[in-house]
Design a protein around this nucleic acid. Structure first.
Lengths: 347, 347
DNA sequence: TTTGCTGGTCAGTTGACTTGACCAGTGAGA
DNA sequence: TCTCACTGGTCAAGTCAACTGACCAGCAAA
């Protein structure tokens, strides 16, 4: 009857888990970085390091500063494909636009209902380095599973396609990449916006976009020019001050812009407040339209005219395609959603 | 490959051991004394007592001071495995403030890691009907499980407490309700804001709150008056037009308010754009401080001065309390978080 | 009534674990 | 060649579960 409760320290448990996984060959010939490994185990780095030290002493690993930890002489059996779904994104959740968080949550729910967990992999390197490199690292640290690429540059999308990895693109799908994708129809949105602006008698419309290389932004520019040939498309650096500078230059004087279409909802907010602060009247002097539609835009005064998409439709499509990939079905379906136009007071 | 290391507290492990032993009838009809039992399990008495408390709550035991603890005939089978967590909220996800969506997502992730799915139950009736009625419907439609009450009015909170249902309050916990709760320390925030405003030489500060009956708003008003006795606290109807009307009345003329502290981040946005649109200078003529801190506020020009809380801490606390409830532990812990002050350009 | 058990409660301390930071070595790409 | 983003190596401050040791009140047999 006297059953003593075993006290195993966290690092001992971690060592046990890692030992069995290494034995199964789940990690290939190199372990992922300590920081990543620690968060995956749900354990702090010092704790993980204690576990790694015991494994090193047992002869499972070789560690050297500056190099990834090497797995020694393991019976490296192929691990079974465990179909977890991973969302690859360069931005942490709390810096995403609210609408994005919203569909991501919805997606998580739908996938969970189908028995597939959704894991968020935040990798800022996604944007900066070449696709090949990023992918190599990812394959090492997260073997197997289905990938959802969010805000991934074209190079990375192509790298996934080239290796025939199960992946789908959420937003900003580069043209010609043979991966299934779900995206807003930015070309149609911006063409519509440009037409609308012209119909209201605005003669000098401008499209403002961040200077990142998202394919959706390129589409936006094309659509805008289709709807209003000869209009201007300007890039900014994404900071409030940089955007303000751009706005002030563009809207100055009699020949300044009389309508601004803005990509990204937070930037639309920056533009609106900047204009109001400078004493310009919206929409009398300058009209503002937000290409993207977060809920908070409706609380500005005047409410921003915008294009609002339904996160549930978005998530439903993503979930369907992701589940197909889990089942091994490869399609190249390109879904283009057209959001609803929400008339505000800024046009 | 979700290889998370499970964190089971010592008392949970002890409870599990005892539960199985009781079920096997290993102890007869009375347990040995706590001191003896504790040393047998290799555990301290407080830890053992925590385990006994959960077993008592589950109906396995009957404890009375002075008497040995009695083992009840076939403690009722607790469907412990089936412990889904449900978030009850009056607002659908896409209408929530971004920060809320953010912590909700984080919470979902943490609970999923512990093997508990999170289900969102959207019930607008939560706000309109009496607590008793709402609860009856909920018990019928979603039997069992742990509840997280979000934006629930006091009547509903009390109804849950009265029926002794496993529930915890996320935000706006009514005082005196014996449920565990996690909330921002609105009193401290508003006291701080009031003091800050006074220190900057503002003489006529105003606190603007929606006219809903959220307990957090009442706390805010109290804190604000503590920090600046004699200041004004005004209510508005939550619509942009209604809020604007209020703002224009309050800030008009020489004797108008020279500083506005605003509850709810979207309302802070409304106030800022309304003031700027009316040609007032921020902060020269009127300072604006947002009590709540969503990320988009930083993209206004000037950036809003605000109090930003970390959604991860928030979610961590909620997850911990929810998991405790899943294990049958009832606490009345009231967690009050103090967010960080973010200096913007509106003060 | 006394004594010795039972459970009920608490303040103070310990120590494992977390957090966030900084450092130095390595190697791919500009 | 230099830069920069990774790697592992180190550390100090803070958090929190658990332990320790104590005292209290209820109960029942001596």
């Amino acid at each position: 009857m006297p059953v003593r409760i075993p006290r195993t320290s966290l690092s001992t448990q971690a060592a046990a888990v890692l030992r069995s996984e290494i034995a199964q060959g789940a990690w290939g010939d190199h372990l992922p970085g300590e920081r990543l490994l620690a968060t995956r185990l749900g354990v702090s780095r010092p704790t993980l390091r204690a576990a790694l030290e015991t494994l090193e002493a047992e002869g499972w690993l070789e560690r050297r500063q500056g190099l990834p930890t090497r797995v020694l002489e393991g019976g490296r059996r192929q691990s079974e494909r465990n179909c977890t779904v991973r969302m690859l994104t360069p931005v942490p959740l709390r810096d995403m636009p609210p609408l994005t968080v919203c569909w991501m949550d919805e997606l998580r729910e739908r996938l969970a209902a189908a028995g597939h967990p959704l894991e968020l992999v935040v990798s800022p390197a996604t944007f900066t380095t070449r696709g090949e490199r990023t992918l190599q690292r990812l394959e090492r640290s997260h073997p197997g599973g289905v990938w959802i690429l969010h805000l991934a540059p074209e190079s990375l999308q192509r790298a996934f396609a080239a290796r025939d990895l199960p992946a789908l693109v959420a937003g900003s799908a580069a043209p010609g990449v043979p991966l299934p994708s779900v995206d807003l129809d930015y070309r149609a949105i911006c063409r519509h916006a440009a037409g609308l602006v012209r119909a209201r008698g605005r003669r000098r419309p401008v499209l403002l976009l961040p200077d990142t290389a998202a394919p959706g932004d390129a589409e936006s520019a094309e659509g805008f020019l289709e709807g209003c040939p000869g209009a201007r498309v300007l890039r900014h650096d994404g900071t409030p001050s940089g955007l303000c500078r751009q706005v002030r230059t563009v809207c100055k004087g009699r020949e300044g812009a009389d309508a601004v279409v803005v990509g990204r909802s937070v930037h639309a907010l920056t533009v609106l407040t900047c204009l109001l602060g400078d004493g310009l009247r919206v929409p009398e002097d300058v009209a503002v339209i937000s290409r993207d539609g977060d809920a908070f835009l409706g609380h500005a005064v005047p409410a921003l005219t915008r294009y609002a998409s339904d996160p549930r439709r978005w998530a439903a499509l993503l979930a369907r395609e992701a589940l197909r990939l889990c089942e091994g079905v490869r399609t190249g379906a390109r879904h283009r959603l057209m959001p609803d136009f929400v008339a505000g007071g800024t046009l």
